[in-house]
Design a protein around this nucleic acid. Structure first.
Lengths: 325, 325
DNA sequence: GCTAGACCTGTAACCGCTTACACGTCGCGG
DNA sequence: CCGCGACGTGTAAGCGGTTACAGGTCTAGC
């Protein structure tokens, strides 16, 4: 019973006769033998590990993404390394270095801020990379995300259809492409409806409740009239609603609010939030599928099959026709 | 310039003369050399990796825990393997097997459902294990968690102090120890205040919004009188509030609600939620600190230094004195 | 009965690193 | 001037697997 035979047996690689197999089995049981994956990885040059880089797991949209990723990863018996970058380029680089050392098989990333040249230094080592939800500065990576622009447009159209004309927008961080795309969708809808654009109705937030809260307070403070707000994400929307209520405005009677993401809690806010649904689980699965495919294909450069999801509008109770208040 | 010298240089282990160091440095840069952590791990028998097993990353309380863990882990240059068990014992076992193969240095777990004997089979391989937030069936693992019983008691006392006597409780899954402890705290507070216990006021939820929603609906349907509800966690509380509103009850004017956890969004619900704060970040850090210490100590059996945090009451707007409605 | 080939199994090299140890060089004190 | 220790560096043996290849046994075909 040589190590070679045992190896063949446990990996079902190469022929092993019945009786020998039995003997190995009993020995394995008796000794509590567990193959050492590290040693195996050293020779196979594959760790069955993928890394997921994201800004901050605390943003309630991301855990759903993670869950989707994990579901598929586990089906394929991959394991997930979670890396919170806090959008700090130094941390990102540190992580990439670490991941390379750990020989991860592939990388999933939402919104790296690192410049292309830096990213390339790592992908050139042959590790496939796919971007999820937010863009990264590395065009040849496949992307999977919703159509941010279209979603924002649909959200805004919903408000327009309800008769609103004075529609404010609390944006995300301006440096993020998503923010700009959602803003663009908002503006596209407005101009399609021939609503004159009013810079005072655009406040910049940061995708946080607090950002939404302060954004609406600013709006309120400037005494600019508005009957609806499209927030760039649900967190902002929730903050916006809190601010509106704190200042005596009723939602949706006085002002309608729509968000973006459809985080799990959106259905349970008061009022339940009208929002654009992002199919986070499926997106996570999809990105992982593409990544694992790229790993199997071998060459670090995955064929760039982007995948863009539609973000349907979910109408709940935070929006109502203009003037119903 | 032998491999040995290079190894000594990059690990700062053993003496390397200045000029040699310089030569190595330039060579490293020129070749883009990155040490292979797998090979290193094979000989050092340490991977600088810890695993975090939790039921479901989608529960908004857990990401904060994860963040705390990750913060400290990164400071100590450990890396985090995330494992969602969905509270499925088969998945848990599969994961443990996998983690053993991957030679993780330590394991953090919140609420394994696996029986002790199974857990032991893995820890006996010398991998330290610490339990976080929820108990596991493995007494010798250090635990870090809040005082669930005390927190629940404080929450209930708050309602009592506001004059409430008919206080309902939406519990968590009965099979979880946390649920039972929070329930015990609730009952302790009631009996200390000489409030007669009423079984009809206790409904069992499952720590989800939906559980809270249905729990309150059941309460409402049975036409049992209550003026306050203590929900076993914030998610339940949010569901409870949604149900109350859906049935025309105002919060807090008609019924007060208090939760448990103080998830980030608790401050932004309508009304903002009165709740027991769990210092998730610190708890995560603390557990990780203990785990890494145990890893450093070498023997798989960490000295069992449990750490229990206090969960202070955060009073917001979901509770008000009885009869103010 | 002999041999080709199928079928198992063992031998040994190797994955890329760490590390005990051997070795050579040097400076110093006696 | 010699010997010794300190200091740098190289050699080589693993770490625990995988896998190419060699070899041994057995069956079947001639």
């Amino acid at each position: 019973m040589s190590t070679a035979t045992v190896s063949r047996f446990v990996n079902r690689a190469g022929p092993v006769a019945g009786p020998t197999g039995k003997r190995i089995e009993t020995a394995v049981l008796a000794l509590g033998y567990r193959p050492n994956g590290i040693a195996r990885s050293l020779v196979t040059k594959t760790t069955h590990t993928i890394a997921f880089l994201l800004p901050d797991i605390t943003n309630p949209f991301f855990p759903s993404l993670v869950k989707g990723v994990q579901l598929l990863a586990n089906e394929r018996s991959y394991v997930l390394l979670l890396c919170s970058t806090l959008s700090d380029p130094r941390k990102e680089e540190e992580y990439l270095r670490l991941l390379q050392a750990k020989q991860v098989d592939g990388i999933l990333a939402v919104g790296l801020v690192l410049p292309r040249s830096q990213i390339e230094r790592f992908t050139s080592a042959g590790v496939p990379l796919v971007s999820l939800d937010r863009d990264i500065d590395y065009p040849s990576a496949p992307r999977v995300h919703v159509n941010h622009r279209k979603g924002a447009q649909v959200a805004t159209q919903h408000l327009l259809a309800l008769g609103h004309r004075a529609i404010a927008h609390v944006s995300g961080p301006p440096q993020l492409r998503v923010s700009r795309e959602r803003l663009a969708g908002y503006e596209a809808a407005l101009s399609a409806a021939r609503v004159r654009r009013d810079e005072r109705l655009r406040v910049t937030g940061d995708f946080s409740e607090d950002g939404g809260y302060r954004g609406v307070e600013r709006l309120l403070g400037e005494a600019v009239h508005f009957t609806a707000v499209f927030a760039a994400n649900d967190l902002s929307a929730i903050g916006a609603i809190a601010a509106l209520k704190a200042h005596g405005r009723r939602v949706p009677e006085d002002v309608s609010v729509v968000g973006f993401d459809d985080i799990h809690l959106a259905a349970y806010t008061s009022p339940p939030l009208t929002t654009i649904h992002q199919p986070a689980l499926e997106m996570g699965r999809c990105a992982t599928e593409i990544l694992i495919q790229a790993i199997a294909d071998g060459q670090g450069r995955p064929r760039s099959n982007d995948r863009v999801f539609e973000g349907p509008l979910i109408v709940r109770d935070s929006t109502s026709p203009l003037g119903r208040g």
